[in-house]
Structure formats: structure tokens, C-alpha cells
Design a protein around this nucleic acid. Structure first.
Lengths: 166, 166
DNA sequence: AGTTTATTTAGAATAATTCTTGATAAGCTT
DNA sequence: AAGCTTATCAAGAATTATTCTAAATAAACT
């Protein structure tokens, strides 16, 4: 199933390379967690990852899933995505992007940065600050829910939101 | 101490107006919490607000501070600011702005939106989404810490960070 | 004055995450 | 391959920010 083995020093670094670069190992558990994120790229929470991995690795513990997610995040292989005080979600998309949290269906979608644009194009950052991280989230309705909403769909025919609406 | 009473229907809506518009009351506790935010606009956490208000209102409870912050937020009088999994911070700046979280000194500073710019200038949002909220945070070093860092200040002469650095 | 409704408070409860500890496994070294 | 070191895993306890519950208080309304 491996497409790139990197036995020789070619191509761009794989997740394994990033892990090994820190003196850590790509264990079965870490790979299973990573594969779960790559297989269904819908920004699952730790518990959702746990449930998915558990089907293939029934003895894995939730603590291990948390550990793996933290390790993968620290190694820069995946990103942790936070919005308000909701549980963290995880995302294997390493390109710079924002997230749209749909309050209709609870989905989270990636919003790419327009080409040749940078955050400082719109934000008046003082010249002498140094930025190491940039997180952007939109809350609203995804295309599907926005369209349904505009069509005046009665609310109770919509899919139940995954997040509580107060 | 009140500068605008709005006894007549003049001028822009005050915090009191917003609260009353919801059938709620501007109580002493809510005003004290709001004043604490306006008096020292450094994005305190709920516990920090609690400590500040407690000096003027010794019997107030932490639960009340949480309640007041939630009410003020719901009424659109203040904004809750979240970054990673850190405790929420609160901000009375209602203009659209981002936040810079300094990992050197733990401070949070407002970053204004450049005039005539909009998030969709840089983010490739699908046309048919509807956005109701937009939160942006930068992590890095504030001007002071970035300058100190560039001058190769030994780390232990710097102010201790307010956030744990792992 | 009496009734309704909002608010406050203290403490219990919740939920996501982290920590602790002992067991297991992998990688080196000889 | 045996022994040593270090990384990893798992189960459950602990932590922490926040929310909930229930009773007391206070304000507004009749």
C-alpha cells in the first residue's frame, strides 16, 4: 500500500521521515491514526478517530489516540484545528488554509488561500512582529446548507447539527 | 460616571441598550464585569476578570462572572476570544480584528483589518456559503519580544511567559 | 403588597484532555 | 543472541475550564 518508501534520499519527506527526524518511531498505532485521517478527511475529533481506528485495531486506547495525534501534530504531519471551545479536530492538509464550520450540518471544510495572497494583505500587522502560526475559522453555512436555507427548507427536514445550537 | 444615558432615543446603542433589547437587565455585576474589560483591555480570562472585579465587589462569584461574560457576549457587547485549547479570553473591541498571541510574554494584541479589505480577498470561499463569524489568530512574538529576541537577549532575562511552553 | 421573572450564588457535575504508572516492545551494544 | 536503554502503550486517575442545579435574592410588573 505504500507508494513512497524513501529508502533512498529522494523526493519530499514522508510522515515517517518527519517522525524519524525527531528520534521517534512510526508505530502501528501512529500509522493507523494517520491513515484514519487520510482515509476520511472530514476533520474528526479525537474520539471519532478513536472509533475509526478501533475497528481495525480493537485494543487501542483513547489515551494512545490522543498521544498519537499530539505526536503527529508536533512533528508537523497533521494539524490540530480548534474553533471556539469545541473539541479539537484534526486535519492532514498541510497547505495553508482556513476552515468553515457549518452550523447547519456540523461539517468542517477546508478553505484554500488564494494564490499569491498572504494574511498581511488584509491584516495590519506591525512590521516587527514575528508570526509562527496563523489560524482562521469561519462559522456559517456550507454551500449545501446555505442553498437549502435559501430555498426556505423547514428546519426539521435538515440533518441534525453535530454541534449543539444554544 | 455614565457618559451617555440614552434616556432619549439618540446616538448609537449603549451596552445597556443591547441588554435591554433582550429583555435583560444591566445589573451591578454585569456592569462591573464590563468595566473590568474596558478598564484594562488586555484580553483577560474569566478567572482574571473574576479577580479584578472581586476587588470592587468582594462577594461576586466565579459562576456569576462566567454568566455575565456569556450574557455580554450573547448580547454582542463583548467578544470571546479563543486560541488553541487555552482558556477563553474576553475583549470589548467590537471592530473586526484579529489577535496576536505572543509566546514570549503571553500578551494578546488586537490586529486591525486594513481598510477596504475583506477576508474573502485572500480566502477562496465558495460563492454560496454564508458566513456569520470570522475568527483569526496569529501566534508569534509581539513587537517588544520580537525586538528583544532579535537583539539576542538571553532567554532568562525575559519576562516569564504567561502560557506554558512545552 | 403580591406575583412573576431574572439574577446571583455555592457547590456539584461535566467533558475534553493530560498525567501517572507499570507493562511491553523496539533499537543498540557487545 | 543477551542485556541495556529508551520509546511506546494502556488503563485509569487527575486536572481544568466551564456548565449545570437548586435555592436564595432582587427587580419589575399588576
Amino acid at each position: 500500500m505504500k507508494l513512497r518508501d524513501n529508502h533512498s534520499g529522494d523526493a519530499s519527506p514522508t510522515p515517517d521521515d518527519h517522525i524519524h527526524g525527531r528520534g521517534l518511531r512510526m508505530t502501528d498505532q501512529r500509522r493507523a491514526v494517520y491513515d484514519a485521517l487520510m482515509g476520511q478527511r472530514d476533520h474528526p475529533t479525537a474520539v471519532e478517530v478513536f472509533m475509526r481506528v478501533k475497528t481495525k485495531m480493537p485494543n487501542i486506547s483513547l489515551a494512545t489516540v490522543y498521544n498519537c495525534l499530539e505526536t503527529l501534530t508536533d512533528c508537523g504531519i497533521i494539524k490540530a484545528v480548534n474553533h471556539d471551545r469545541e473539541p479539537s479536530r484534526y486535519c492532514p492538509n498541510l497547505a495553508e488554509h482556513a476552515h468553515l464550520f457549518c452550523q447547519g450540518c456540523g461539517s468542517v471544510m477546508d478553505i484554500p488561500l488564494r494564490s499569491n495572497r498572504r494574511p498581511q494583505d488584509i491584516w495590519d500587522l506591525p512590521e516587527d512582529v514575528s508570526v509562527v502560526q496563523h489560524e482562521v475559522s469561519f462559522r456559517g453555512l456550507c454551500p449545501k446548507c446555505a442553498t437549502a436555507d435559501a430555498a426556505d427548507t423547514p428546519p426539521d427536514t435538515q440533518k441534525a447539527p453535530r454541534t449543539r445550537s444554544k
